[in-house]
């Protein structure tokens, strides 16, 4: 009797889980039939980023240093007022082609100072930045929390394209079709702005790039809104991974070595097993 019970445990356990799953399945199917999930506003109106081509794309991509410098300028003049870049150090700017004295000056002149704690007074003071400092954190008092931009292109799906689309997407209002289903989107809440590229559709950030020439490029490139958005996106790809190019160069070297080794190992394998039936 017990042996029969032990033999049938597997059927009981299996049957038990399957039974509960079938009950759950019935519930799910019933739910889909009776109360089909209504389409959400996000699903209807959210847009995936437009394609963005950058010099750093692809396994053979290289950073365009002039573009990175332009992008840094856009960050400095437009974004840095609200967005931190705390994971980047001033000395990293040498990667962009700036000289040591230039980097020193950028750091010293940086508007947000480095916080310093006064042990004697028990208070916080500030000092000028030096190249070895990280970009100091920016604290934004208004609505919303502007995210730190150092890793933004890695922290969002299709990050660089997302940044570019977001910055240029403020003009894209909800379609008439969508407004029929979601009439509440005809008027954006106060302090918010409609942007179909933002996951939640209404973003607290006002359009930061509103007109051409907002930033003065020194290399002659026309500073259209699209250009500035592209440049800052390229810059943020660099801030997210400054070692990107090194990684790919090392990768080609490693792959070349491994492919050669692969041929040698295959040859060795064949020679070891030559004539041995298997």
């Amino acid at each position: 009797m017990t042996s029969l019970f032990i033999k049938s445990i597997k059927f009981l356990v299996g049957g038990g889980f399957i039974l509960v799953l079938l009950i759950a399945l019935a519930g799910s199917v019933w739910g889909v039939i009776n109360e089909p999930a209504a389409e959400t506003a996000e699903h209807a109106m959210h847009k995936h980023p437009k394609e963005l081509k950058l010099a750093s794309d692809g396994p053979l991509g290289k950073f365009d240093l002039r573009q990175l410098q332009r992008g840094f300028l856009v960050y400095k003049e437009v974004c840095a007022a609200c967005h931190s870049l705390n994971l980047v150090s001033f000395r990293n700017l040498k990667d962009l082609g700036y000289t040591d004295p230039e980097v020193k000056k950028i750091a010293k002149d940086w508007a947000v100072k480095q916080p310093v704690f006064d042990e004697k007074g028990g208070t916080w003071g500030e000092r000028d930045n030096v190249p070895s400092d990280r970009f100091p954190k920016v604290y934004y008092p208004g609505t919303g929390t502007p995210p730190d931009l150092s890793l933004i292109t890695k922290a969002r799906h299709d990050g660089a394209a997302y940044v570019h689309s977001l910055l240029t997407g403020y003009n894209e209002k909800p379609s008439a079709e969508a407004l029929k289903h979601f009439p509440e989107f005809a008027k954006t809440p106060d302090g918010m702005h409609f942007n179909p590229y933002f996951a939640n559709l209404n973003i607290a950030m006002p359009p930061p790039l509103t007109q051409d020439g907002q930033v003065q490029y020194s290399d002659g490139t026309r500073a259209t809104v699209d250009q500035m958005s592209t440049d800052v996106a390229a810059f943020l790809v660099w801030t997210a991974e400054p070692t990107l190019q090194t990684r790919r160069t090392a990768g080609w070297a490693v792959l070349a070595f491994l492919i050669v080794l692969g041929f040698l190992t295959y040859g060795a394998y064949r020679s070891v097993w030559a004539g041995v039936k298997h």
Partner: peptide, 22 residues
Amino acid sequence: AKDGLGVVVFLILFSVLIFFAP
């Protein structure tokens, strides 16, 4: 010898991930 070959193939796939699609 056969495992050596397998290891090299493994390292190739591993390297593609690390260096090109981390």
